[in-house]
Computed example of a mutant assay.
Amino acid sequence: MPNSWGKFRKVRGMSGATASFDPRPRLLKVIRSHFAPFRFAAQKLADMASSTPRAAENWLSGQCAPGVPQLIELMASCDEIEREVMQLVEERRKAREEECPGSKSGSDASSG
């Protein structure tokens, strides 16, 4: 059964920007753009993600997104996917700073 991130619900105390954040469309777009041109794209994607061809077909069709272990495998295999994920992380950090000026990221706050 393919892994899905489920629906994101608004959480009390979170701003609209944070509560509605959904990285799946951008992640799936970069996965499709990288793998769709290949013959046997689902098999190649599955191999790189250490997953099944059926799960890879679901990612390519946009039905669901890879789980964390598969995403890490893809990031390790494909610079384009790694860059997109890191860009998403950086955008989230900036959004959090705008929501709560003066706050530190989790790694900075825990090092003190």
Rank of each mutant, 00 (worst) to 15 (best):
K7A: 00
R92S: 00
I81L: 06
G102L: 05
P2R: 09
S77V: 02
Q63M: 09
M14V: 05
F35A: 14
L74G: 05
I72N: 01
R83Q: 15
G16Y: 10
A17V: 03
K29D: 14
C78I: 07
V68I: 15
P37F: 05
W59V: 00
C64S: 06
M1R: 07
N3I: 12
A41K: 10
A41G: 05
S105L: 12
L71T: 05
V89Q: 00
S103M: 06
A42S: 10
S15R: 08
L88Q: 09
E82T: 08
N58Y: 14
D22R: 08
V30H: 06
C78K: 00
R32I: 09
S103W: 04
E82Q: 15
T18F: 00
V85T: 06
Q70M: 07
A76R: 13
K104H: 01
S4Y: 01
P101M: 07
F21A: 09
L88Y: 03
E57A: 15
R83I: 03
A49K: 02
A65M: 03
F40A: 09
L45D: 11
E90A: 14
V30P: 02
E57K: 15
A76L: 09
G62N: 13
P23E: 08
K44S: 14
P69I: 09
W59M: 04
G106S: 13
Q70I: 03
S51D: 03
N58D: 13
E80D: 11
E57D: 13
L45H: 11
D108K: 08
I31Y: 02
K44V: 10
K7G: 05
S110C: 10
E73P: 02
A65V: 01
L28Q: 14
A95C: 02
Q87G: 13
D108N: 07
T18A: 12
A17M: 00
E91T: 06
E84Y: 00
S15T: 12
R12C: 02
K10A: 13
F38Q: 15
A55T: 07
L74T: 04
N58A: 15
S61C: 09
L71Q: 04
R32W: 12
D79Y: 04
I31W: 01
S15K: 06
A42P: 02
D108Q: 14
G6I: 00
D22K: 12
F35S: 13
V85N: 01
F8V: 04
K7D: 05
R54C: 06
G16N: 13
C64G: 04
E97A: 12
G67D: 04
P101N: 00
I81T: 01
S103R: 08
G13V: 00
T52H: 10
A56L: 10
R9I: 07
